[in-house]
Design a protein around this nucleic acid. Structure first.
Lengths: 148, 148
DNA sequence: ACAACATCTTAGCAAGGGCTAAATTTAGGT
DNA sequence: ACCTAAATTTAGCCCTTGCTAAGATGTTGT
């Protein structure tokens, strides 16, 4: 009797979007960690638990837990009481995250947001930007650059 | 002996940003729920567990859990086996979330992102946009509107 | 009125991600 | 070489956010 009702279709689409956001959440922390680890290795030669804890604003114990999970997931390697290294997968994820982060940050600045706010917001936004949107951001940055 | 070292200052700023993102995460779900509840009440007259579950893509039991927490936190009211209502605080949060969501979505579209991608990305981005950035987004949308 | 069905709730489980406190190991200074 | 301080790990706790399965309650059609 009922026509295939559009309300359900809308609900379904909505639900899909939510599932996607939930999935993104699961990779956020991993991205932040590998990005930071790559940065520390580049800048200081090594990544230690205590440094990560300081940069992330959490305790050493928390970092340790998380590193175990990242190791389980094949993103980092480490031996007891030693510093942390990225696997190939970890390095790749780190590189990709860094690029995205930079584009988002530059985009916000090009849009007229002050650089401190850009730093803060980029940290949250970067994990939720699809490649299509990222492309649009990059295009805008380039256009803004050319016109100055 | 050491000069107040800038590495630590950078680390401190980084840690603050992270803490802010972590805080945002704690309010995300609440925002999504009240936004959806407001929408359902407006469109269908009431918000029921089963509808929320369908729109969010989770089970009824999960919705129920979350609603308990939201009630504890003063955002919704409900009685056993009855539908869900927003408190004043809940309504306010819903309204604010809806506005932010809409601006982000319109902004992405104005930037040239296709509307389906805009729908998806807005869902993730909206919770991480400061009021300064939101203002910049709104300004861009208005400018784009005037120039067409 | 009441049986069947839908909805809601409860109970119990798991993983993620945070904490503190208490080992344990490593590294540095004398 | 050894003692101490720093770093790391472990253990045990908490809350959130998801799930399934089972029980309780409402609603509806005949």
């Amino acid at each position: 009797m009922c026509p295939p009702d559009d309300l359900n279709a809308e609900a379904r689409r909505h639900a899909e979007r939510f599932q996607r956001v939930r999935e993104a959440h699961q990779t956020e922390l991993a991205e932040d960690y590998v990005e930071l680890i790559a940065h520390l290795i580049e800048e200081t030669g090594e990544a230690r638990v205590v440094d990560l804890a300081g940069w992330l604003g959490v305790t050493n114990a928390t970092v340790n837990n998380t590193i175990q999970r990242l190791q389980r997931d094949g993103l980092v390697t480490t031996k007891p009481y030693r510093s942390i290294f990225l696997t190939d997968a970890g390095r790749e994820l780190a590189e990709q995250s860094r690029k995205r982060h930079d584009i988002v940050r530059e985009f916000l600045i090009a849009l007229g947001v002050d650089s401190q706010t850009a730093d803060i917001d980029a940290e949250g936004i970067e994990h939720h930007v699809s490649s299509a949107t990222l492309k649009a951001f990059a295009k805008f940055v380039n256009k803004a650059r050319r016109s100055t």
